[in-house]
Design a protein around this nucleic acid. Sequence first.
DNA 1: GATTAATCTTACCACCTGGTTAAAAATTAG
DNA 2: CTAATTTTTAACCAGGTGGTAAGATTAATC
Lengths: 187, 187
Amino acid sequence: MAKETRLRILKAAQLAFSEKGFNGVSVEEIAEMAGVNKAVVFYYFPSKADLFAAVWEQSISELEEHIFEEIKDESVYLKKVKKFLKSYIDFVRNKRDIMKLIEREKVGVLSEKNDSIISRKLKEKYKNFVKKIVDLLNEGKELREIPNEVSAEETANIITNSIGATIFDPNISLENMEKIILRTITK
Amino acid sequence: MAKETRLRILKAAQLAFSEKGFNGVSVEEIAEMAGVNKAVVFYYFPSKADLFAAVWEQSISELEEHIFEEIKDESVYLKKVKKFLKSYIDFVRNKRDIMKLIEREKVGVLSEKNDSIISRKLKEKYKNFVKKIVDLLNEGKELREIPNEVSAEETANIITNSIGATIFDPNISLENMEKIILRTITK
DNA sequence: GATTAATCTTACCACCTGGTTAAAAATTAG
DNA sequence: CTAATTTTTAACCAGGTGGTAAGATTAATC
């Protein structure tokens, strides 16, 4: 066992939180799923909230890396933005549990009420991800590929909030989503 | 007191659930907010889940009625769809707690694996609301005001998931959102 | 092989949870 | 005014919660 234990707990927590949400799952459940004793969880993570923080940061990172790694070599803007949407959709399809976690906990993370250092960091993490999309869109405006009346912040908001939500409605076609979004941002 | 007690509990629960989510709030908390004894809550609602169900159904109804009441007299399609967006935005602005509740619990309601009669009804309630938007959009396609390549289901998905989410980001301009959505659905 | 450090287990705790019960208070009906 | 009914109260319960303490086991260091 030894060193991979922490990772097993993280993975189990990711799945558990994605299925039942932070408040819907107990540390004992997570421990069972990871095949470890409950106290071991607290050995590796000071509290349930800290465990969640670790899961959140890792989940956003995975999404972020998956999307932006694939488009970084593309220099033709329109191709880049198309690749961006494709890889976003790809992530929703293949990493359903991570996407579900993000969708489920987004509200709790962004909800302004709690202002502890830990929750401010989680908020930051997510906002930073969105900002990268805003930057991508602004790049297109500078290149005159995206019309000026399409504001980047709001478009990024539309993209992030509507693509992820599709996992809760099996009838939604991601291809149609892609088509509509592309239609919206291009002339 | 007497008959209005039930309503006070409902209102308190609506606020409580919107702020902390179903699992994040206890029945005792709700009771305190409503100014009643905890047992009174169980006197009016058989269980916490039933209380939530009542809150959910009422919240969706309020949103639904607010939006569709205002547009039912409009016969010019483009005006109707513009009014629709305006009243949607109006609701987000003025009924923040209800919107927050819907945004927060949407995931839980839609992804509930347990197919109990109660949770199936909640899912149904929300899907029915979305369907009304789909119908509105399809009406526009029949009237040739909305292009065929803009699929109604996916557009409704975009609208419902992105407008509501704005409450968690104070920097998002609802007017810009409106502009973008209008741009998307019209030629 | 002994010492030290890292990891894991068992047992426990105080508190909170949704929910119940039986009786008291308030309201309504006769 | 009294009896029946509705509404509210306080006290309680069994099970679960996040979290802790102390010791046992394993692994690393000398």
